[in-house]
């Protein structure tokens, strides 16, 4: 038996795509691959303060942390999209709205990713922060999907504890 510690990139992409089309519509699909010429300089640099990160942890039969990082303008678009607000408000939407929307987004993506792995396991409540979220524990990234939405880079990654990710199994 081979122990599988991480979901495949295409499965994670399928989960993310389903969440995006359900709550943000299918007019502007989220596409796999890093963004190219439409990316602004700020996006490419991905300076900490210009990024929002939402994270959620899975504990139980499978242990992992699932993270979504988006540049500030994309965070605004996600917020107005999910709350059904006028897109013109994307840049001015309140901090509370923004953290709540990103928290729910990572909750739903996390639930989908969790379902790819053997259970039973449980989700934590989400954590949302400006900049990068660094975990103090011994985690390593095992899967990362780079996506583009409205020309912005969106990154979904999965970290698992080093110990369960041994070689040979």
């Amino acid at each position: 038996m081979i122990a599988i510690d991480e979901p495949t990139i295409s499965d994670v992409h399928a989960v993310v795509e389903e969440v995006w089309t359900s709550f943000l519509g299918s007019d502007e699909p989220i596409q796999i691959g890093a963004s190219t010429e439409t990316t602004s300089l700020v996006d490419r640099l991905m300076l900490d303060d210009d990024t929002w990160t939402a994270a959620i942890t899975v504990t139980g039969a499978w242990e992992a942390m699932i993270l979504i990082s988006v540049p500030v303008p994309a965070a605004g678009l996600i917020t107005v999209g999910m709350l059904g607000l006028d897109p013109a408000e994307a840049e001015t939407c309140g901090l509370e709205d923004l953290t709540d929307a990103l928290g729910e987004l990572v909750n739903i993506v996390g639930g989908g990713v969790k379902s790819l792995m053997p259970g039973p396991s449980a989700l934590s409540l989400p954590l949302v922060a400006q900049g990068a979220i660094t975990s103090t524990s011994n985690l390593e990234e095992v899967c990362a999907v780079d996506l583009t939405w409205h020309g912005h880079p969106i990154r979904v990654s999965i970290d698992v504890p080093r110990t369960t990710h041994g070689i040979g199994g």
Binding site: F23, T79, M82, L83, G84, D97, D100, G103, E104, L125
Partner: peptide, 12 residues
């Protein structure tokens, strides 16, 4: 629901 975003989606 603890998420206001989700409550707003369902409410609509």
């Amino acid at each position: 629901d603890d998420s206001r975003t989700m409550r707003s989606i369902l409410k609509r």
